[in-house]
Design a protein around this nucleic acid. Structure first.
Lengths: 290, 290
DNA sequence: CAAATAGTGTCTGTAAGACATTATTCG
DNA sequence: CGAATAATGTCTTACAGACACTATTTG
């Protein structure tokens, strides 16, 4: 963008000091998928979606778990800030990321007015990183479902339990979601009822799980959570753990056939029939998304 | 969220004055759909998607057209700020809105570092409002399409022409989009090549048109752009103008049948067969979205 | 009646859902 | 061989795409 002469003159004397400004942070919701311990060596391990949390070393919320995040440095772009943060605080290098949502509620930070631009990150590595991985277990319960004249009101309570197996930590969180629609007016409210996390970070995690779930349907985003080579059962399990529902094998294979290519590798020595490994076919998007 | 005693002590002495903070604005991309002038009284008018722009009264970019927007007041929530802005600067009361994206590029505002949380708004009224409606005409041209080892690179140039018929103003804008995917790494870059608008507002408008287009498929968002009663042809035309493609009549009617209910009203006296008017059936979402 | 839009019917092909069946590997 | 998973086959139903056809209104 060019700057006019008039603008150049104006900018010489421009000062932003007279306005009160909010602080801005970025926060990262980092997901990975791992194998659960199988209860029997001849059984296939199940998959588990995990999120990375770091125990806070500072006030406020000292010693509570939180998402990795940092204040925005004015010299850096938003995505640069994200990268620096994830690199410095977590030590993670390879990941997919996208902007999730900007949270700006007045009450979300007790210090002062802080906006947070949140990001969703997906990784497939199990690099040795700083922070703890927590299993994500989500259960939702419809608490109210009402049809109204020309619309409806629906409320649900979402129970998010985050568990760290190593340290035997269990974080309990409750979110209330209400969705009301009357004619054209619709109002969706998401409120934290109870959280064991710092700030409103559980809300960010919830938003990210929903975003991930929705994007499974129309993108190939899931491959960012898988290793280069994977069996179709692993791929199916990964879908299931994100969608939180079981899929039928034959149908699943037909559906994702175009998105993957077979390799010559097999996963073998598992106590049952070995499976062919596949890789992602990145050309799939070509006709669909761009 | 409760605040611990330790946090309470900490907060007494907390000051955020030592950090440099960015300015934060909100910007509103407001869409509506109107009838184009028909060239013949016996023909059906076509639909046109429009966006609301306001001529800037201040430096920088004095006299250029821009989206309605305002600086965030720390006393207000983000959505409150949006509502106040749209009410004060535009005079619009009834609309659907959702957060679009947070733009934070260092160079996006010549004054200082300014983040903008952008919103997409949809209205069906033709209230007497402040600002000018501009027809949106988008043409994209693929400039490069390359298959690579395990991925592809694709570039397109998007030409956005915004036209105000009353004042005979034509704003020319070019955006370059490049999308590269190699294995798991994907990089999408959107750059303004030329714009007649202030700031990066044309980018916001482009993002919003894409968001709107995508959401047509899986939501009933379109009804926010239509009057209470509408003919199925009007509904189809509205889809077409957003999707930028023609639809087949019979198929369209089958597809949207569940989302609408017939009324007893007819649109008549038009020089051809009159059409039944329908209304949105907001219960449709029930089984799908919530 | 002509012109234009409104609205219906139908054929085809594709894909999802459900479920049955066969194949392979390991102990 | 038995247990478990891997992989394929098939029947049904739903729906999108294409296109032909009928109906209605107005000048």
């Amino acid at each position: 963008m060019e700057i006019s002469n008039q603008d150049a003159d104006f900018l010489k004397f421009y000062s932003d000091k007279e306005y009160e400004k909010p602080s801005v942070t970025i926060d990262a919701v980092i997901f990975r998928i791992v194998n659960k311990e199988a209860d029997n060596y001849r059984r296939l391990p199940e998959k588990q979606l995990q999120v990375l949390l770091i125990k806070r070393q500072n006030l406020p919320f000292l010693n509570l778990y939180a998402l990795p995040g940092t204040f925005l440095n004015l010299q850096n772009e938003l995505s640069q800030t994200l990268k620096l943060c994830v690199n410095d605080k977590v030590g993670l290098k390879d990941y997919y990321f996208e902007q999730l949502f900007t949270f700006g509620e007045k009450s979300r930070d007790p210090r002062t007015r802080v906006l947070s631009v949140s990001y969703m990150l997906l990784t497939n590595g199990n690099d040795n990183i700083n922070g703890e991985w927590f299993d994500i277990d989500i259960k939702d319960k419809i608490t109210l479902s009402q049809e109204k004249k020309y619309g409806f009101l629906r409320k649900k309570q979402v129970n998010l339990i985050l568990t760290n197996q190593n340290q035997n930590i269990k974080l309990q969180n409750l979110i209330n979601v209400s969705f009301e629609k009357v004619n054209l007016e619709e109002k969706k409210v998401t409120e934290i009822q109870k959280t064991d996390l710092a700030f409103d970070h559980i809300k960010m995690i919830y938003y990210a799980t929903e975003r991930l779930k929705n994007k499974l349907e129309y993108t190939d985003i899931i491959f960012n959570l898988l290793p280069q080579n994977f069996s179709l059962t692993e791929l199916k399990q990964s879908y299931e753990v994100i969608l939180r529902e079981k899929l039928l094998d034959a149908n699943f294979r037909r559906k994702i056939a175009k998105m993957v290519s077979p390799t010559d590798n097999f996963l073998t020595g598992k106590g049952f029939r070995s499976s062919r490994l596949y890789e992602h076919n990145p050309l799939w998007t070509f006709s669909n998304l761009v």
